[in-house]
Design a binder for these strands. Structure first.
Lengths: 254, 254
DNA sequence: GAGGTAGATTCATCTGATGATTGGCTCTAC
DNA sequence: GTAGAGCCAATCATCAGATGAATCTACCTC
């Protein structure tokens, strides 16, 4: 076992046995290094590793403190490594995301009565994306027909990157608001990690089907309708269907 | 941004843009430190952090290499922080675990035809726990001298720690085999992280209901039956019911 | 050709020193 | 008495150099 491992294990052990609680300050580097029997350099490597994991937080001139240990903090580094997965396991990652988001939708619907604030944010997110879509020059004036996927070759002008960014932002806000309504911070943190910005960017870049953005908007609206109606079954099914579509694109691409 | 962050970002960027692939060797510390414009100490802090995250692996006398970046490696540190959650979010953690294990059971059933090997291991795990349970009443005079030294002062059904450990081991093996049969490594790694040894220990210690072990065995058997029969619906429902029972204990305790 | 040995390479760790930032104390002015 | 400015000590951040330990490589011996 390396010195650094000794440091990591030592500090986590102190947290587990209660001698260090969230918010507590760690001993100064010199003392802690002496306690653990390592040099200051090795101590810093271990502390830094725990810092990356979100367990402790070092502040220059002040000290090193145990974080709140909230799920959102501790799960965050998972987002980093999920991005490193690259295309190899993109389908597997998204499958798990779909499973969890489906449950998010169900829980959000069950909690609808107690989650008015979060659901109001979801409503706002959909209003924002609807406004973006309305302001955008449409390719076809007609209604968004399901059969439009046959017309993939139509001469669509390059979509405005700013619009694309706004839609992505609203999408993130929508799903995040639902996760909050589900009232399970571990679930929310995991979904956040699995559906990070980079991953979503990759997804949306890959989906070039005409009318895809409008279709997403419709599906979001349907999901929110079910959630607000307190109908978990419909919310689950609609969320699952929504994310399965994305998954189909991943599967088709390879 | 700290020097260490520069190191972490720099190395992850090299992996993302393809200049470093899984299995590749990083430049020697001195060179890499010069490239990133940091001292060797800061470089080591960053590399060590990535090492804890399972992204790189340093070998003394050899070099530092990018790992395979497999989900099981990268998700592993999540298990550490899940243990740090302690009792505060135990219920939330287990709820997510139940959601994922339910899907594991469903996928395993769907894949039953192609997962004979993994399901054979699940069968073995249940046979092991069945044998432990069958031998338990006869512990005192039995030929199993391995762990049966704690016979002093026994009068009632004081559970043998060795048996408890064996049952826990079989439980882990059973769920792990099902996860493998589900054929989604990301899903399997997450379940593994959420249901770590320590968490399971806590659970099993809390469940003191008479006959709980036998009941668990029966439920496991029912789950495996459904999986082997290729019946995802039954497998899902039975797994969900199984883990909901555990969850009820958590909810009752606080 | 097989096996072992010596050297070079690389990471692991320690020691010491300096800079940057923060928090708290003191002193002063009103 | 209180509010503000300025000084000082504590603490983390970073660097530099040196030594030890493990591994790999090349060469040498038989």
């Amino acid at each position: 076992m390396s010195r650094t491992d000794r440091v990591v294990d030592g500090i986590t052990a102190m947290i587990l046995d209660g001698s260090l609680a969230p918010g507590d300050r760690l001993p100064v580097e010199k003392d802690l290094a002496a306690t653990l029997g390592v040099s200051r350099g090795s101590l810093r490597e271990g502390v830094r590793a725990l810092s990356v994991l979100g367990v402790v937080d070092s502040r220059q001139g002040d000290g090193t403190y145990v974080t709140s240990l909230d799920p959102s903090l501790l799960v965050a580094p998972l987002g980093l490594v999920v991005e490193l997965q690259g295309a190899g396991h993109a389908l597997h990652v998204h499958t798990v995301r779909r499973m969890l988001e489906t449950e998010v939708a169900g829980l959000a619907a069950s909690n609808a009565a107690r989650a008015g604030e979060a659901l109001a944010r979801a409503r706002e997110a959909l209003d924002d994306s609807a406004a973006t879509l309305a302001a955008r020059p449409l390719l076809t004036g007609g209604p968004r027909a399901r059969g439009s996927r046959a017309a993939e070759g139509e001469g669509a002008a390059a979509p405005d990157p700013a619009d694309h960014e706004a839609l992505l932002e609203a999408d993130i806000a929508f799903h995040r608001a639902l996760a909050e309504a589900a009232a399970n911070p571990v679930l929310g943190a995991l979904v956040e990690a699995l559906a990070g910005r980079t991953a979503r960017h990759r997804l949306w870049r890959g989906i070039t089907q005409a009318g895809a953005d409008e279709r997403t908007q419709d599906e979001h609206e349907a999901i929110l309708d079910a959630v607000l109606a307190g109908d978990p079954e419909r919310a689950r099914v609609r969320m699952a269907a929504h994310l399965l579509e994305v998954e189909d694109f991943l599967r088709a691409q390879g």
